[in-house]
Write a protein that binds this DNA or RNA. Structure first.
Length: 745
DNA sequence: ATCCAGTACGTTTTT
DNA sequence: CGTACTGGAT
């Protein structure tokens, strides 16, 4: 029997209850980590409904789709059958843009470009504006445009305040970029916030309409809102200032993305009669963990101090673990996890490994695979970023939005249709002055004399095929996907390829059909367009499934809002955490410290901070300097163990390396020995005695059938090979496995 | 037009 | 170390 609403309210602390029951007027909830923030928000929503507020008058905004889904579920548990609008800022933006498309001068079928699409647009803009900048990468320029948009600066406004050379270059490209976006009927992530924000500040009629519609607005993770998001929240709550924002300045980790800590710090200025509630009691972590977190974050100067406390036990000491190398770190952390599970103390799902950068996950993946430890890498969108999947999705995007030139270029010659670089350039030259999309130009290919031969028939066939496929769009998402894969020839291309990697690509593309099917099965009203939108707006954590019994591996950013019994934070080394690019500026360094704080406060019972003496980086092994944050922890609160293979015997004191070489500022020191590849070269006599087992060779196994070798490692008796069968990947000792090489026919 | 091999290049974090 | 792009050969 679930508790009644009254029982739930009764179980809240005084501060929490006040945040839940004071529903009218502006409210700022400063919620420390683990202080029951989500509980407060969901109870507040439930309470509003309890008081008779209509569910469609409530808008709750979260940071990720996962958080939104969770919140919906928790509200539904208390107040069933209510349809409350809970979404991310970006999803809200999409809905507003589609709803008010006419008013904003947008076509309703716009495509949402992700960052890699945007880089493509910048490249195209550079090309068509004939600007040749070798000094700045398209990525950097894209980043600057993104920043401008976060600040709600349109091209002409940006130009006015472009003082340095870089900004002036960006100012030249920004309007071209915008033109291309409009021509392609595309919007980027920032547009999803910028357009609604500008509309709310400029179109009073629209603003008042929306303000009246959303009587109660709640914003989670308010410390991470940027100017555009601020204006959206503000614009919706002028006539009905029932805005409740929840956040923690100490957990602000998106400054680089335009987040303005000022938004939360100045809330009381914007809403002078705001009620401020502090949630300082932590219900998540042990005293030992909380003390470490508190001590660390106290080193930030630009900060409002607050006291964190918990009624929980002291718990075990926080462990600082030193390893010899990054590889050992991964191996031994994996081993510790496995031993705890095998001893029956823990489940795999109790563990999380938190990393500053994604690149660190490689070593872990290999350690987990070797030790047969189940894990999930929380990097949800990676699957859709594979070339083959992007290709297929490009077809779909082009079908839904024929003006999407970027997708046209991507799809038109994959599989090959004889349309090369020169033909495409001719097509572009024809289309641009005529304000035609590339697809429309392809339909007129007869009028373009410069295009000849195979390219003519190829373009015609492509245009015709797209026209035919457009008729399929009404089918279910999975059926549309299947038709696209089949009728574009994409499946055939992969199937007939003799490159073994293409068989995996085929499997991935087929997985898209399954994904579309599942998407539809969850809610039958969803279309293929919804599917595409969902993919582009998905965040990394969205794919994380805490019910699966495996170790979670993710970045510190992705971990925000989650909690785990045991947390391992890895690579606490200068240059990684804090990241080398933050070392120059105090504000960025403080953000790194907050990032560490977020990581530490994810832990409920046990926390381990690990680092290594040496770390392989970009092919060479460098000495690492322990993170300055380790020195900022209460020394009596942590227990340091040297688990390195040398046991600390041979290593000189870390301090003797400091500040001597050029690498000092970055925190890296050359170890003086060359990269491991060189030494591996010595011990590779196995290449002289070929066994026929090479990557790409097809083999037959008595049990698993035919598979393809994906990896060969080790030598002689220890030579191992990894084989991918249709049933999955398996490793064998080459000497023992009953394998026969299948001769290609 | 296409393919491949060689090189240049860069690497935080993400909706 | 890996990928992405360029320039050469076919």
């Amino acid at each position: 029997m679930p508790p009644t609403f009254d029982e739930i309210v009764a179980s809240l602390t005084d501060a929490q209850r006040e945040a839940v029951t004071q529903t009218d007027g502006p409210m700022l909830v400063l919620a420390g980590p683990g202080s029951g923030k989500t509980r407060v928000i969901t109870c507040r929503i439930a309470n509003l409904i309890h008081q008779g507020v209509r569910s469609h008058q409530i808008l709750a905004i979260t940071f990720t789709n996962k958080a939104a889904a969770e919140m919906k579920q928790r509200v539904a548990a208390m107040m069933p059958d209510q349809r409350i609008w809970i979404s991310t800022f970006h999803s809200l933006g999409v809905r507003l843009l589609r709803q008010y498309a006419d008013r904003l001068g947008l076509d309703r079928n716009f495509t949402i470009y992700d960052q890699s699409d945007r880089v493509g647009v910048v490249k195209a803009a550079l090309k068509s504006a004939a600007i040749d900048v070798t000094r700045f990468t398209p990525e950097t320029i894209q980043g600057a445009i993104s920043k401008a948009k976060n600040k709600l600066l349109l091209p002409h406004q940006f130009e006015k305040q472009a003082n340095d050379y870089f900004s002036q270059v960006v100012a030249q490209i920004y309007p071209v970029y915008e033109k291309k976006m409009r021509d392609a009927n595309a919007v980027d992530f920032d547009d999803l916030l910028m357009w609604p924000a500008l509309a709310l500040t400029k179109d009073e009629e629209m603003r008042a309409e929306l303000d009246a519609r959303f009587r109660y607005v709640l914003v989670d993770e308010y410390q991470d809102t940027n100017k555009a998001q601020y204006e959206i929240a503000r614009g919706l709550t002028i006539d009905h200032p029932n805005l409740c924002v929840v956040g923690d300045p100490d957990q602000s980790i998106y400054r680089w993305r335009g987040a303005e800590l000022r938004n939360i710090l100045d809330f009381e200025r914007d809403y002078p009669n705001a009620r401020v509630i502090l949630l300082e009691e932590n219900f998540r972590s042990t005293k030992a963990i909380l003390r470490v977190a508190d001590h660390l974050i106290a080193h930030n100067k630009k900060r409002k101090p607050k006291t964190l406390y918990t009624a929980k036990d002291e718990g075990s000491k926080v462990g600082a673990l030193l390893f010899e190398t990054g590889l050992e770190e991964a191996d031994l952390v994996a081993q510790r996890i496995r031993q705890a599970v095998e001893a029956g103390k823990r489940h795999y799902r109790d563990f999380a490994i938190l990393l500053r950068i994604n690149a660190l996950s490689r070593a872990l993946e290999s350690a987990f695979t070797r030790q047969r430890i189940p894990y999930q890498l929380v990097r949800g969108v990676a699957f859709f970023e594979r070339k083959e999947n992007r290709d297929v999705l490009a077809y779909l995007r082009l079908l839904l939005n024929p003006k999407d030139d970027l997708s046209f270029v991507r799809a038109v010659n994959e599989p090959a249709r004889g349309i090369g670089k020169t033909s495409l350039e001719h097509l572009q030259k024809y289309a641009e002055p005529r304000e035609l999309s590339l697809l429309a130009a392809a339909e007129h290919v007869d009028k373009i004399p410069a295009i000849r031969g195979k390219a003519v028939t190829g373009l015609k066939a492509f245009a015709l095929m797209m026209a035919e496929l457009r008729g399929v769009l009404e089918a279910t998402p999975d059926e549309v996907m299947r038709q696209v894969i089949d009728r574009t020839g994409y499946r055939r291309m992969l199937k007939e390829s003799d490159n073994p990697e293409d068989q995996e690509r085929l499997a991935n593309v087929e997985e898209l059909i399954t994904a579309a099917h599942q998407f539809h099965a969850e809610d039958e009203s969803r279309t293929i367009a919804d599917f595409l939108e969902n993919i582009t707006l998905a965040s990394d954590v969205d794919g994380f499934d805490e019910k699966q019994d495996c170790v979670a591996v993710m970045t510190l950013h992705a971990a925000k809002g989650l909690e785990f019994p045991v947390v391992h934070m890895m690579a606490l080394e200068q240059g990684i955490l804090p990241h080398e690019r933050s070392l120059m500026r105090d504000e960025e360094l403080e953000e790194e410290r907050r990032l560490a704080f977020v990581g530490i406060t994810r832990a409920q019972e046990e926390l381990y901070l690990s680092y290594a003496r040496m770390r392989e980086f970009r092919g060479q092994t460098l000495y690492a300097v322990p993170s300055m944050f380790l020195e900022e922890l209460p020394q009596d609160g942590i227990e340091t163990s040297d688990l390195s293979s040398s046991g600390g015997r041979t290593s000189p004191a870390v301090n003797t390396w400091r500040g001597s070489t050029a690498g000092a500022s970055k925190g890296w020191y050359d170890t003086g020995f060359s990269d491991p590849k060189a030494s591996r070269e010595h011990e590779r006599p196995e290449d002289d005695a070929p066994t026929g087992y090479e990557v790409g060779v097809m083999v037959h196994h008595d049990v698993y059938g035919v598979g393809c070798i994906t990896e060969v490692s080790g030598q002689a008796a220890l030579r191992k090979i990894k084989i991918r069968f249709s049933s999955g990947e398996r490793s064998f000792l080459a000497a023992k496995a009953k394998l026969a090489i299948v001769q290609p026919t």
